[in-house]
């Protein structure tokens, strides 16, 4: 199946606005569908493959996909990337199993081209799971990656997309607060602030700017948090409020309707699990310190106004587009399709 044929099959599916599994809020559902339509655009997969892989190559063979269970986009993108490079799939899935089955159907993958295994880490037969596998595409936490580094036989290529962190930075004078607040709201609340590109901290030079944004964000209609997330907000809110009584410089609020928090402090640790965590101070100093402390985990740096260049982030963009990495861009500093093939060289005269 060529990349263009693959995209055409994918397009037939995404054009019908498929219902995606998981508790996605309407904005996140719409975003996921848009990204899937983008992935299925005519010619895009072919161009991406041509751009990432030059010279003779062959598929790795069989690729095991182990992708976070709540990661709908990652599951589809991983399967499509493995198929676009001519690999056969083995997918470890439990809650995403219906999605993977649907995907196998629309991509017309036979049972040998797409094996689906049940997700049960405790009783997993590692040898059976990895039998005949040439590569493992992993997205998840540190523990998952450590585990596969231990159990994968030598020679099996591990393509690791581990946990990452997104950061936003606001430099200089802000002229359009309404647009900036809306952009921050979108970046923070999409995917419930649970993906690598979600800004966990917002560095800002000027406290006045943070205060204006705080007011706007607290007044904004945001997708409501539910259940345990709101309870955890309550606990951390209480912690930060009491630390403020002990003299720490913290302003902390939780929007009563949505449950999203807003904090203003001088320490990135003073933030709520879900919220807009403004950290005030000289931008270069704060960003450098944060980047050093989280060196192996940096992913997206969202900017507004003049923000210093920094090493370590693998994607830099405007605030409001932090989840919208261009489809031809590398992922976490890696060419994803290139990682799924074996490049073949030939000697002179061969």
């Amino acid at each position: 199946m060529t990349p263009d044929e693959l995209a055409a099959r994918l397009r037939r599916w995404v054009e019908h606005e498929p219902v995606l599994p998981g508790a996605l809020d309407p904005a996140t559902m719409a975003f996921c569908r848009r990204k899937l339509r983008q992935l299925a655009e005519p010619g895009l997969l072919r161009r991406k493959l041509e751009r990432e892989v030059t010279g003779p190559w062959e598929p790795l063979g069989r690729v095991l996909l182990v992708i976070s269970e709540h990661d709908v986009l990652g599951t589809v993108a991983g399967a499509v990337a493995a198929c676009a490079t001519g690999n056969r799939l083995r997918v470890k899935a439990r809650t995403t199993r219906p999605l993977v089955e649907e995907l196998a159907r629309v991509l017309e993958l036979g049972p040998d081209e797409c094996e689906i295994l049940d997700w049960d880490s405790r009783d997993q037969d590692d040898r059976a799971m990895l039998e005949g596998v040439d590569g493992v595409l992993l997205t998840g936490g540190d523990a998952l990656i450590r585990r596969y580094r231990t159990i994968a036989p030598p020679g099996v290529r591990l393509i690791e997309f581990g946990p990452k962190i997104g950061v936003a930075a606001i430099g200089g004078e802000v002229e359009d607060y309404a647009t900036l607040a809306g952009s921050l709201a979108s970046d923070v609340t999409l995917f419930g602030q649970g993906v690598c590109s979600s800004p966990q901290v917002i560095f800002v030079e000027d406290e006045g700017t943070a205060r204006v944004l705080r007011r706007r964000l607290l007044d904004m209609k945001l997708p409501p948090l539910t259940g345990a997330a709101r309870l955890l907000q309550l606990v951390r809110l209480q912690e930060l409020a009491l630390l403020a009584r002990l003299g720490d410089e913290i302003i902390v609020d939780v929007a009563p309707h949505s449950g999203w928090g807003v904090t203003i402090s001088r320490d990135p640790a003073h933030r709520l699990p879900k919220g807009f965590a403004f950290v005030v101070g000289p931008l270069h100093v704060q960003l450098t310190a944060f980047a050093q402390a989280n060196r192996r985990y940096l992913q997206t740096l969202g900017t507004w106004g003049p923000v210093p260049e920094l090493d370590g982030f693998t994607h830099r963009c405007r605030i409001g587009r932090m989840h919208d990495r261009p489809p031809l861009a590398p992922h976490d500093g890696v060419l994803e399709l290139a990682s799924l093939v074996r490049l073949v060289s030939r000697g002179d005269g061969e």
């Binding site: 990661d71 936490g141 540190d142 962190i165 419930g192 993906v195 879900k274 985990y297």
Partner: peptide
């Protein structure tokens, strides 16, 4: 109750990607 996924790299659990 534990911090949900994505609350920062040092305490990161399962992170999804985009």
């Amino acid at each position: 109750i534990t911090a949900p996924a994505g609350t920062g790299a040092p305490d990161a659990g399962e992170h999804a990607r985009t």
